[in-house]
């Protein structure tokens, strides 16, 4: 059966929908955790430490975090590969385009593909910046509050994060609604609620994530 799901455009889209929803759930939790930075270094750093001791003593130190990371990698890869294969197919399905072109569908819908590429590149940058600290000069492992403040000291890094979060908002706006339809959850009566939820999620996630660099820039977090 797994072969049938992956072999069909409808099934592959369902894989995209499920993997997208997994990442979306993660992002909501991630954003919520980020906002703890406004409660000071003590709260933020102890929360970060708690994430590593999560599930103890049943799980070893950092195991819960690694389980989540593996799950996320699976979701990102499934989402990306399905998107690539479906997009290739979509582009092939109209070899000769229209001479008279019109702006079709909404901005969020039209930017799903490139927006997704931007987000993938951003994830790489984000991990090198705040997880491994490879690209950050003053990175101190185990001191996330200090690292966040240091990372957002550079205006250009703030710009990268803010642009990426706007792209995320657009992606979630169409993505959540689209996932609901792909999984068959939509209906004439339910679609208004689904669209509203998609817009609310997009807005809350973007605002919540952007709040951190803006907080550092304005000196609210220092």
């Amino acid at each position: 059966m797994a072969r049938t799901v992956w072999g069909s455009t409808v099934g592959k889209k369902a894989v995209m929908a499920v993997s997208g929803l997994v990442m979306l759930l993660y992002l909501v939790v991630h954003m919520f955790g980020n906002l703890k930075i406004f409660f000071g270094p003590g709260t933020f750093d102890s929360y970060a430490h708690w994430l590593r001791t999560l599930g103890e003593p049943f799980l070893h130190y950092e195991w819960a975090l690694w389980i989540i990371r593996v799950g996320l990698v699976v979701a990102v890869v499934a989402h990306g590969v399905a998107a690539y294969q479906l997009s290739r197919r979509d582009l092939r399905s109209r070899p000769v385009g229209y001479v008279h072109t019109k702006a079709r569908s909404s901005y969020a819908t039209r930017t799903m593909r490139w927006g997704g590429v931007i987000l993938a590149l951003f994830i790489v940058w984000h991990l090198l910046d705040l997880t491994t600290g490879t690209v950050q000069r003053g990175f101190v492992p185990g001191h996330p509050y200090h690292n966040v403040v240091a990372a957002f000291h550079d205006w250009w890094n703030n710009a990268i994060y803010i642009v990426a979060m706007l792209a995320l908002g657009l992606h979630v706006r169409h993505g959540f609604w689209s996932a609901a339809q792909t999984l068959g959850a939509g209906s004439a009566t339910r679609n208004r609620v689904l669209k509203g939820t998609a817009n609310a999620l997009a807005l809350v996630l973007t605002a919540g994530f952007v709040a951190v660099p803006v907080g550092v820039m304005t000196g609210l977090v220092s």
């Binding site: 409808v10 339809q181 999984l183 068959g184 679609n191």
Partner: peptide
Amino acid sequence: GGCTLAGECATACPKGIPLTSITAMNREWL
């Protein structure tokens, strides 16, 4: 091609087949 829920089909349909028709088929397929 595959569906990206752009909704252009339902807008163009001269007979007003709604976009939720696709949602219902996805549900049936799954």
